[in-house]
């Protein structure tokens, strides 16, 4: 705590402090590095994957991990390592896009409620309270079943399951910031409403939104995998980590590596995302952070 105070006295901004605090959290830095590495690998997959996505090695079906096939091969002789990389592209993409949808919807909704205030705010937040009680995942399942397993539809639907908390956080931030002195000061100096929002409110409200975003991504990745595991998400020949795990379960008695590698990859990613989210929260909210 005392070190944070010292840093603040040097006149650094909130963000410099946050970065300094985040750097001290070794687990969060490790998670960040691993995620960045994963992201780069997945972006470059078409160029660096050892095999093609659907290339079959029919002499080598269901073979265990080896130098030629790091993660082994599946029942059709496809290289699992390659498939995990391609699956990662899908999982991460769905995670990012769906989280993006949730941020856009949640932030707009919450900002409007907080900024307008009064009766509208009351009504909007009551609606959120009610919606909280709905288990959206069932609606998503119905949606996915009936409207084909369309990937665009999937990330929109998944994004729409996650915006409620984002809306609450944004509203809370907007309301507390509106009452802060520096906003009054800006008003008295003749700064217009739009500029206040752009220059003062958004940068200050950003912290909690980013923290919650990092915690939304693993939730969405998990939900995608959940749907895919049930056979309701990504469809063959495309694969995500969820479908790979499902395929692995079917053959785990004879080829457990087909389950273990995708499962480990997914779990490690979720682990890193959660730790990064926690680290960011502690870094951006020094009061809430443990000593």
């Amino acid at each position: 705590m005392s070190s944070a105070v010292v840093v603040a006295e040097k006149g650094n901004s909130l963000w410099d402090d946050a970065v300094a605090r985040l750097k001290k959290n070794r687990l969060a830095v490790f998670s960040l590095c691993l995620l960045a590495f994963e992201l780069v690998i997945c972006l470059l997959t078409p160029w660096i994957a050892p095999y093609g996505f659907e290339v079959q090695d029919l002499n080598n079906t269901l073979s265990g991990p080896s130098a030629a096939h790091w993660f082994g091969t599946d029942a059709l002789g496809r290289d699992l390592f390659t498939r995990v990389l391609y699956g990662g592209r899908i999982s991460i993409m769905v995670g990012l896009l769906a989280s993006g949808v949730s941020v856009i919807v949640g932030v707009i909704y919450g900002a409007v409620a907080g900024f307008v205030g009064g009766k509208l705010d009351n009504l909007m937040m009551r609606a959120v309270d009610v919606l909280y009680a709905l288990p959206f995942i069932f609606l998503v399942i119905i949606l996915m079943v009936y409207f084909g397993r369309n990937i665009v539809l999937m990330f929109i639907a998944l994004g729409l399951t996650q915006w409620l908390t984002m809306a609450r956080i944004t509203r809370g931030q907007v309301i507390s910031l509106r009452q802060k002195e520096f906003v009054d000061a800006a008003h008295t100096m003749g700064v217009t409403g739009g500029t206040i929002v752009r220059r003062h409110l958004i940068p200050n409200a950003l912290g909690p939104v980013i923290v919650y975003l990092t915690l939304t991504i693993p939730t969405v990745v998990l939900e995608e995998a959940f749907l895919s595991f049930l056979g309701l998400g990504v469809q063959a020949p495309m694969a995500s980590w969820g479908t790979l795990i499902k395929d692995g379960v079917d053959v785990m008695e004879i080829a457990p590596w087909l389950l273990l590698f995708p499962a480990a990859t997914l779990s490690l990613t979720l682990f890193c995302l959660n730790f990064l989210g926690d680290g960011l929260r502690d870094a951006l909210d020094p009061k809430g952070a443990k000593d």
């Binding site: 785990m252 457990p256 779990s267 490690l268 959660n274």
Partner: peptide, 18 residues
């Protein structure tokens, strides 16, 4: 927290069942 149900389940089956 990090291992989803559909990972834990098969793992438990693999270890304790198979």
């Amino acid at each position: 927290i990090c291992l989803p149900t559909f990972v834990i389940g098969p793992l438990l089956v693999l270890v304790f069942g198979i």
